[in-house]
Each structure stands twice: as C-alpha cells, then as structure tokens.
Write a protein that binds this DNA or RNA. Structure first.
Length: 398
DNA sequence: CCAGACGTTGTT
DNA sequence: GTCTGG
DNA sequence: CCAGACGTTGTT
DNA sequence: GTCTGG
C-alpha cells in the first residue's frame, strides 16, 4: 500500500502539520528536501523526531525506506524492501521492534496514492483530507553507515488494515495520526506504552479520494498534474446514476461552502464523475477536494527550490532537475548539508504563510460509525459499484 | 554455541 | 541489535 | 509501490 | 509471468 505520496509542504510547515506547537530544537539535512507531488521510497522527506536528549524535537530530512543499522556496509541499500511496517507485527519483527523504544517519528504529507486493481488495469487514486490539512503518519527511523562512512537516516511508515471507507480501494492503509493527542502519543509516549490504540485505521469520514492520471505511476511525472482529478470511464447501463446526480448537487454546495476555492481552478473545471470503484454509501458522500493544491505548491517551493518554482508554470521537469542534483547522494555532501542548516533555518523563518488547520479535528457526528461495509472478508471487496465490467479502460490506447 | 535472518505488498 | 534455527 | 525489461553470440 | 531498477 502506501508506496507513493505527495509532499509539497513547505519545510517550515511540517512541524505544525505534526501538531508541534513549538519550534524544532534544530533541523537536520533539510536542504535535501525536495517538495514533490510524486514521492517514492528512496526520496528524502521531512520527518519530526524526538531530539536525542531533552524535550525538544528535530525536523529531520530522511530517506523513505528503512535501511536497518545492521545492514551490511557493502550492501546496496534497498529502500523498497522496508518502506512499510505492519503495525500488527511491528513488535514481533526484529527489524522494527528494536526501533520502538527510541526511534519513533512522524511524517507529514498532503496525501498518498493508491492503485486500484481492475484485472490487469490499475487506476491510481489520490487520498487526502477533505480540508487539505496534511496527513501525519506514524513512522520509525534508523541509521546506517555505508562502507564510505556516510551515515544514512531512513524511515518506514506503519500500516494497518484499511478503514471501512477505503476497503474497496485497498486492504491496507498507512497509520494516520488524526489529532494532536495521537501524534503526541506516538512521538512522546513511553516505550512501555501500548500503541495499540493509535495504530489503527483512520475511520473518520474526512479522508477522501479521487482518481488521478495513471501517468503519475512514472516517477518522472511530477507536478500538480499528479493530483488533478480525472473522469473515470462510466460503464453504460447504470441503475445508480441517480446517486451521482445527487452527488453532483451536493458537491456543488460543498464547493461553495469552502472558502478557499478561489485558488483552486480544478475544483470548478473538473466536475468529478466518479463511479467505478466508489463505495455506495448511503448518507455521506466523499467530497470534492483538492482545495488549495496549487496554492500549497506555490508556497511550498520557497524553501529549497529556485524562485522559478513560485511560478505556476513550474513543471515536473523543473523539479526533477533540481532533485537530480543529489541523485548520487555522495557522502561528501553530508557535511556541507548539515552546515547549511542554519542558513536554511533563517530562510524558513523569513516567510509567513497560510495555515493549514493542522490542529483542527475532523468534523464528525459522534455516532457516525458508517457501517456501510457489508463485507467482512477482506478478500471480497467487490460490490455493485465495481462489479461493472470495464468496456474500455481509461487507457485503451495501444 | 554459531549462523543467518531480519520486510511488505500483492497475487494466485 | 536481536531473534530463530540447527 | 510501479515501470520496464525479459538474450546470446560475436564484432568493431 | 517474473525479475530488476527506481
């Protein structure tokens, strides 16, 4: 599951996204961070971890994909091997259990991608919070020293079974810490704590999704296009078309309700037409989203990217060009990177920015348990919605 | 005792 | 580093 | 996770 | 289908 994400957060937004009220005691390697709409294991992402001693926390850029410290020095690091850790077995697996006492951290992203399989076809969906606030993942990190002496920090994202709402998409999902309490518990809890209560699927209804272009499957594809909603092929005869009619109406209403829509062209231009694979929920329907995506991106780029990034004309290639600079990540860069942190910090503080409501809790009507999932066995996630045969896949180009 | 592994996902 | 298997 | 390759012999 | 590379 969680093997691809969007993180275009500004570096200085990350602590707040992780519900930190104070400033980081220090930052580490943040100059390596490259905001991207298409992040995969092996990429640098900002995480928040406890400071080695004391109360504070560190804003620390690490590579996604755990490389345990006991990995052979001469071995080639494989970031895809352990980019996820099953929360159900994290206390049993030797590679992860050793990290539980002192190496927990938080990773913040705006959303992640999940591919829905339809036979041989795969359709990616972008999953995110309705109000645009970042998701906070529970994670574990470790260090590894390569044969050249470089110390590499890496982390893995904990996963759990999917929420009822996301079951149709996938049977696994990242552990999302939805409020300050849970993120505090994970980051600061004692090693003797039981994390069972927070390492669970996020069941609130403000986690939403929509289909995006399959082109983002390529790592070379980056930029706002990655999260642009695309229409899904509709499947002819459909006794539920009424639902969508209602949906559309409801969505328009919601769109009006949301104030920040002025930044979001996509919401207005793309009338969402999701059908296939969508859960047929009775009451609540998944909303339009993508609010402030562009805005986020614009403000994001400031920290480490060239000024040109502020421009809307920024392209994936622009980003790649930047990131490629450290593609080889030679150890020789490490020192310079650390030293430049101070510089980075200053730049971070210069800018003020829009809040993303990280501390707000999802709106829920208490007993909205949404027992919509009529299916208990995880193998069988097919329902009326996705039973429909696909006549033409979205990419019937050959 | 030493040697060797240490993981997830998905798919069938 | 730590657990499992032999 | 997805994308892309998936081979040998022999030659310049 | 399955393995490698990113």
């Amino acid at each position: 599951m969680c093997g691809r994400a969007r993180c275009t957060l500004r570096a200085d937004d990350v602590p707040r996204a992780c519900h930190r009220t104070s400033s980081p005691a220090r930052t580490l390697n943040m100059d390596r961070y490259r905001p991207s709409y298409n992040v995969a294991p092996g990429w640098n992402l900002p995480v928040v971890r406890r400071d080695d001693d004391g109360e504070g926390f560190v804003l620390h850029c690490m590579k996604w994909g755990l490389i345990p410290s006991f990995t052979k020095k001469n071995e080639k690091p494989d970031f895809y091997k352990m980019f996820n850790a099953r929360s159900e077995s994290v206390t049993e697996k030797a590679s992860f259990r050793r990290l539980l006492p002192k190496s927990r951290c938080l990773a913040a992203v705006e959303g992640f991608y999940e591919w829905k399989k339809d036979g041989s076809k795969k359709q990616p969906y972008y999953v995110h919070f309705k109000d645009g606030r970042p998701l906070v993942f529970a994670a574990l990190y470790d260090t590894w020293q390569s044969s050249e002496g470089e110390i590499l920090y890496t982390f893995t994202i904990l996963t759990t079974s999917s929420s009822a709402a996301l079951q149709w998409l996938h049977d696994r999902m990242p552990v999302i810490l939805g409020d300050k309490e849970s993120s505090d518990a994970w980051l600061n809890g004692s090693s003797s704590s039981k994390y069972d209560t927070i390492l669970k699927p996020y069941e609130e209804s403000d986690l939403v999704w929509y289909p995006v272009t399959p082109a983002m499957g390529k790592l070379s594809f980056d930029g706002p296009e990655c999260i642009k909603e695309i229409p899904l092929k509709t499947e002819g005869k459909n006794p539920i078309s009424n639902f969508f009619l209602k949906k559309e109406i409801k969505k328009e209403q919601e769109s009006k309700m949301e104030e920040k829509s002025s930044f979001d062209e996509s919401v207005k231009t793309n009338l969402p037409k999701r059908m296939k694979g969508e859960p047929i929920k009775e009451i609540k329907e998944e909303p339009v989203s993508g609010l402030e995506e562009k805005y986020s991106f614009d403000t994001t780029a400031q920290t480490n990217l060239p000024k040109s990034m502020k421009d809307e004309s920024v392209t994936a290639d622009d980003i790649r060009t930047q990131s490629s600079v450290e593609k080889g990540d030679p150890d020789t860069k490490s020192i310079a990177s650390v030293l430049s942190d101070e510089d980075t910090k200053k730049r971070l503080q210069k800018r003020d920015y829009k809040e993303f409501l990280a501390d707000s809790k999802p709106v829920t009507d208490g007993n909205n348990k949404l027992e919509t999932s009529p299916l208990k066995r995880k193998g069988n996630v097919k329902d009326a919605g996705e039973k429909q045969p696909t006549l033409f896949s979205y990419f019937s180009k050959k």
